[in-house]
């Protein structure tokens, strides 16, 4: 049984911070303060070659979530997916380390 009381504050913190992050992305897009310009690597490649060349680079796969063209929705899905994956990975690490510890004792 999961002790909910023990995780009360971490869970509240998670919800509050997710809310703040979503608000940050929403306000950023709404006010237009976020730049649509290419980032450092893209800019360097465009300067040396061209934008068409950069867009034409061959990729062995089509990104699974590449069909989401709304940046705000992509941001929210990405935030939730990241939290889920990280909690899963670190819970696995914690589970394995406790198992190893009890084996050694």
């Amino acid at each position: 049984m999961v002790e909910l009381e023990r995780y009360k504050w971490p869970i509240i913190s998670i919800i509050v911070i997710i809310g703040v992050l979503m608000l940050m992305i929403a306000i950023g897009f709404m006010l237009g303060i976020l730049s649509e310009d290419p980032d450092g690597l893209e800019r360097a490649l465009i300067d040396i070659r061209s934008e068409e060349w950069l867009e034409g680079l061959a990729s062995p796969w089509e990104p699974i979530l590449g069909w989401i063209d709304n940046d705000y929705i992509a941001g929210i899905i990405g935030i939730l997916l990241t939290i889920f994956l990280i909690i899963a990975v670190f819970s696995l690490i914690s589970h394995i380390s406790k198992k190893m510890k009890s084996k050694n004792e």
Partner: peptide
Amino acid sequence: RLIPYIGVLAATIFAFQFVNYPV
């Protein structure tokens, strides 16, 4: 007890990598 915070920190990194500031 750190795990949820690690998740949040990772989400913060994702969100901040998502927002491009003008240079």
